[in-house]
Design a protein around this nucleic acid. Structure first.
Length: 244
DNA sequence: AAGAAATTCAACCGCGACGCA
DNA sequence: ATGCGTCGCGGTTGAATTTCT
């Protein structure tokens, strides 16, 4: 049994994308917006699986991608965020405008890990390598992730200000993000700005719903607020969100 | 100059989460 | 409540490129 394949593999190209395929994909998304990746290849005249199209667009073709080397500031931010979030690359990417989760993941594995090891820091636990079992006071370890109370990691994902997360997945009304005071202190909230919004110009994806109308991928139920400059409760101090 | 080894990074795969009927 | 279809994420792979011997 098992799940059905995401696409008709027998008739799809694999491997590196050609310039022509890129152009077709760009042109199609320009005209129709993102959304319904499954049907996109056919509509765009591409012999690719929808997943492959999505990945190519997100990781390579999106117009707001920065590309190029990571700055020292970005390095340190990645390390800090990884200390807090663990291998939640999409969440980390949400804090680095113009960077993709795949890019950050690769960068982590090829550069940052090595950098931390050279500093004598375990890249997984962020503890000193020779510290043995001595706990570093208050230091969080990704192996036992501390998630903001009432929020799954998905809910921390970016989205335009006051918008639900960019994954297009829904969140329940009580999914506001808050941190226990002790955790907030230990994380150095204040040292790093944990505003989890994605900066413009990236727009939420458009998708055609069953009724044929083109909408963003967000449902009406998505009322999570990410407009805070600091983490806090939806509707609370600092929340300028109009959705109630 | 040539081959081997190491590194980089685009792309693939499998699974879990979510939306909808 | 349930099942199906789709999306997005994280881990992994492997071809291309760079560095070393």
């Amino acid at each position: 049994m098992g799940r059905s394949p995401c696409c008709e593999k027998a008739h799809t190209n694999k491997g590196a994308w050609t310039k022509e395929e890129d152009q077709r994909l760009i042109a199609h998304i320009k005209d129709h917006g993102e959304g319904c990746w499954r049907s996109l290849p056919k509509a765009a005249g591409l012999l690719r699986c929808g997943k492959s199209c999505r990945l190519r667009w997100i990781n390579y073709l999106r117009p707001d991608l920065k590309r190029g080397n990571f700055s020292d500031e970005e390095d340190e931010l990645i390390i800090k965020l990884h200390e807090f979030l663990g291998n939640k690359w999409s969440l980390i990417a949400g804090r680095l405008p113009g960077r993709t989760d795949n890019e950050i993941k690769n960068y982590w594995n090829t550069h940052v890990k090595r950098k931390l090891l050279a500093r004598g820091v375990d890249p997984q636990t962020h503890r000193p390598l020779n510290a043995g079992t001595t706990a570093v006071q208050g230091m969080h370890t990704p192996s036992s992730p501390v998630v903001a109370s009432g929020a799954s990691p998905h809910h921390l994902a970016g989205g335009s200000s006051c918008s639900p997360d960019a994954s297009g997945h829904s969140s329940d009304a009580d999914d506001s993000v808050s941190l226990p005071p002790s955790l907030a202190g230990n994380l150095g909230v204040g040292m790093i700005d944990l505003n989890l919004s994605i900066s413009p110009p990236y727009q939420p994806p458009l998708s055609r719903k069953a009724d044929g109308v083109l909408r963003t991928g967000y449902s009406e139920r998505q009322k999570i607020c990410l407009c805070l400059n600091r983490l806090g409760l939806h509707g609370g101090e600092g929340c300028s969100c109009e959705i109630r």
